[in-house]
Structure formats: structure tokens, C-alpha cells
């Protein structure tokens, strides 16, 4: 009897529930890709290159999974005619969120192929920049989750995304100035290389902010 009841319940809720779970899972993957990148960069900064490569591969794999899941969600939303009213918003949101995993993958890849020589006096700044940028991404995934479940809390998280993005900008700026002012770095190309990586890492926070702008508008629309 219990089994039949459960079967019936599953039959009634499966479509919506599956999609809900997939969206949760997708946001989890985005979050995970950022956290894996953080780990990867920290390994790199500690000169543990083998471990870095391992983490870097994990970032790539997570990005691939997120991409696949996003396509599946998009297909489901259209094929099963769900949320016609806010479908455009949701799809746009998921797509731009996907950029975050994409940026994470590319940053990891740049480290892996270009193997930048990070000067010891810049290591702490790179570490801080990474941590702050990842915080922006994490806060953004929380905001997106709130958009689906508790729309009145979206702003709270978005404020934090903006805060971390601003912090990231400051650290990026500080890092670049140090790189260009430091007498230890002799070659100009190496200064430019430091600048390039600072900008790449900070791009994560910038992308998070771009999604945040979009999310703010979608959230207003959802406020009844």
C-alpha cells in the first residue's frame, strides 16, 4: 500500500522534482568548480605542481559535467513546457552562470600551459585574490539558489557579490602595482605576465557580478 502511494506521489511530482534536483546539482557543480580552482591555485603557489595538475583536471571535468547538465535542464524546460513565464530568465541565468565554470576551467588551463613564475613577494596577494574571487562566485550561487526558493533573500546575497567583486578589484590593483613597481622583476614581459594572471583570476569575480546584475532584474520580476 505504502509502495503504491509512493509510486503515485513520484508520478505526480517527478517532472518538477527532477528538474529542481538537477538545478540544485548544477549550481553545486558551478560552486565546486570554483572551489577546485582555489585548491588548484593554492597548490601551484606552494609549488606542488603535480597536485595542481590533478586539481586542474578536476576543474575541467566539473565544468564538462555542468555543461552537460545545463543542456539537459534546457531541454527539459522546453520539452516539458515548464515555467513558460520565467523560462527566458531562468535559461539566461543558467547560461551566464555556466560562464563561471568556464572561466575557472580556462584559468586552470592557463596556469597549466603557461606555468607563470610567481614571485614570492606576490604569492600572498595571489592567494588573497583567489580566495576573494571564489567568495564572490560562492555568494552568487547562493543568490541563484535563493532566486529559485526564497526570492526575498536574493538581494542580501547580491550585495555580498558586489562587495567581494570590489575587494577583488582592490587586491588586483595592488598586485599589479607591486608587480610593476618591484625592482626584483627585471623583465618587462614577466611583469605583464603577473598582471595577466591577476586579471584572469579577478575575472571570476567580474563574471559573478555580471550574473548578479542580471539576477537582480529577474528577482524584481519574480517579486509578484
Amino acid at each position: 500500500m505504502m509502495g503504491r502511494k509512493e509510486g503515485l506521489k513520484r508520478l505526480l511530482t517527478s517532472k518538477a522534482k527532477t528538474l529542481e534536483l538537477e538545478i540544485e546539482q548544477y549550481l553545486g557543480l558551478i560552486d565546486q568548480s570554483a572551489l577546485l580552482l582555489e585548491e588548484a591555485i593554492k597548490k601551484y603557489l606552494n609549488d606542488r605542481f603535480e597536485e595542481f595538475e590533478k586539481k586542474s583536471a578536476e576543474v575541467k571535468e566539473t565544468e564538462r559535467q555542468a555543461d552537460e547538465l545545463r543542456r539537459q535542464i534546457t531541454h527539459r524546460l522546453y520539452a516539458e513546457m515548464l515555467i513558460p513565464d520565467s523560462r527566458g530568465d531562468v535559461l539566461g541565468l543558467l547560461e551566464t552562470t555556466d560562464n563561471l565554470a568556464d572561466v575557472a576551467k580556462r584559468v586552470a588551463n592557463h596556469f597549466s600551459t603557461e606555468k607563470p613564475e610567481i614571485y614570492p613577494f606576490l604569492k600572498d596577494d595571489f592567494r588573497e585574490l583567489t580566495e576573494i574571487s571564489i567568495k564572490a562566485v560562492h555568494e552568487l550561487t547562493l543568490a541563484v539558489r535563493a532566486f529559485f526558493r526564497d526570492v526575498y533573500r536574493v538581494t542580501e546575497h547580491l550585495d555580498k557579490v558586489h562587495f567581494w567583486e570590489h575587494e577583488a578589484d582592490e587586491v588586483e590593483d595592488r598586485l599589479k602595482r607591486k608587480a610593476f613597481e618591484a625592482p626584483d622583476i627585471r623583465e618587462f614581459s614577466k611583469r605583464v605576465h603577473m598582471r595577466y594572471f591577476a586579471e584572469r583570476i579577478s575575472l571570476l569575480a567580474d563574471e559573478a557580478e555580471a550574473v548578479a546584475e542580471r539576477l537582480a532584474i529577474s528577482a524584481i520580476k519574480r517579486n509578484l
Binding site: T13, A16, K17, I23, R149, L224
Partner: peptide
């Protein structure tokens, strides 16, 4: 609005 705020229904299910 009160009910929606109280139960925090996921967008998909709310639909």
C-alpha cells in the same frame, strides 16, 4: 504573498 513567503516553494514547483 504571506503564504509564498512562508513556504518558500521552489520556482519549478510553484509553476
Amino acid at each position: 504573498r504571506f503564504l509564498l513567503g512562508r513556504f518558500n516553494i521552489h520556482l519549478i514547483r510553484l509553476d
